[in-house]
Design a binder for these strands. Structure first.
Lengths: 217, 217
DNA sequence: GTCTATAGATCGATAGAC
DNA sequence: GTCTATCGATCTATAGAC
């Protein structure tokens, strides 16, 4: 029994307490929002004292902002498929549609969206982190992809950026609003599939260059 | 000088104080949200004492719920044009698109959306009031309108409800997200017009029965 | 670093005078 | 009906012991 081993509270291996605090805070903030979560509740959930939190984070706002900005970067799907040269347009749009709609419908993504929307006026950097890691980034990549398809003569699109926004809007439709407002049961896989298929079908119906006419061009 | 006229605080003509309270509470709740507004702040803004508020409303949650449900019914455009028989599809969709996008972009509608999203878990009736007075109602009417146009052979749509959701989704697109997250300057009329025109054009491009093929049907 | 204990402010709601 | 004054709870943040 070494003399230095008489601590009754484990300082843990590495920086254990800060990690407990982060996990507890993220869970509570996402579940209940900024205003409804007290530092006492975070301390209780993390199994530490309130003073320990203030030893690692300057104040509640900084803790919230730092953790939620990280969260805003975690909830989006991989979109590497948009970096390839356009080949099978329908397959690519369907894959993107399924991935994006699935990501948007995750309970954690819904909770993050709700929290970001609620706190955007008081935490502007949060809204920016959400937008630029997700909708903005994906829209930019899709815009480039569509522009390359247009250059190949496979799509008839005058404004690729508007078209990209339209396709993504078709994927963030009523199921998303219902989920955000907590109306009815959670969205099921069948509806998500119908949304993705419907979006790809409508988009190609509007913009595909089939050799025939290009409606509305 | 009548004897009964020695009140130094005006009870006002009719029920004046309750109306002052309502207006002050709505303004503050919409600007700052439920949690950030105190009953003291409402009393100060309304020019009454806090006890007067409690003489007219049972508690803060009831005050908030009642006022915000009313607000959720006020922010939507008139959609009587969807009750007529379908004639000029493009003109009708354009008019609906302009009206819906304009309504969605109003600062008050944005603030109400932000507040409803934030408080939906704690005030379920608020989310329901928002959804059913706006998106649900408009979607139902548009679904009927589209179904009649299909019956007339002017549209090729297998699922009118999905198509209606798609058209409305095209109108609640990136400008709405940017506004809700308070990114950049407020949306301008030119962008709203481009959104409405783009939505009508894409929708008819995907679903118009031109006598030629009906893509994706 | 981590704890207990508490300061200092603010909150929702109410009692009691008029 | 409306006010002033206040209660009791809760919140953020910190002081001081170990």
């Amino acid at each position: 029994m070494e003399a230095a081993r008489k601590l009754d509270r484990e300082p843990g291996p590495r920086a254990l307490k800060p990690q407990q605090i982060r996990q507890a805070a993220v869970r509570l903030f996402i579940e209940q929002g900024y205003g409804a979560v007290s530092m006492d509740a975070i301390a209780r959930e993390a199994g530490v004292s309130k003073a320990t939190i203030y030893a690692h984070f300057p104040d509640k706002a900084e803790l919230f902002g730092a953790l939620m900005q990280e969260e805003c970067a975690r909830i989006w799907p991989d979109i590497a498929l948009l970096d390839a040269e356009p080949r099978d347009l329908r397959a690519t749009l369907l894959a993107l549609g399924r991935a994006y709609a699935t990501a948007l419908s995750q309970p954690r993504a819904i909770a993050v969206y709700r929290m970001v929307v609620a706190e955007a006026p008081r935490f502007p950097e949060l809204g920016r982190a959400f937008f630029e890691n997700g909708p903005k980034l994906i829209c930019d990549r899709l815009t480039g992809y569509l522009a390359r398809a247009v250059a190949q003569g496979r799509l008839g699109i005058a404004d690729p950026r508007l078209a990209a926004q339209q396709f993504l809007s078709l994927l963030r439709c009523e199921y998303h609003l219902r989920s955000v407002l907590q109306l009815g049961p959670a969205v099921d896989a069948a509806e998500l599939e119908a949304v993705a298929v419907g979006a790809a079908t409508a988009f190609l119906g509007a913009y595909a260059a089939t050799g025939a006419e290009r409606p509305g061009a």
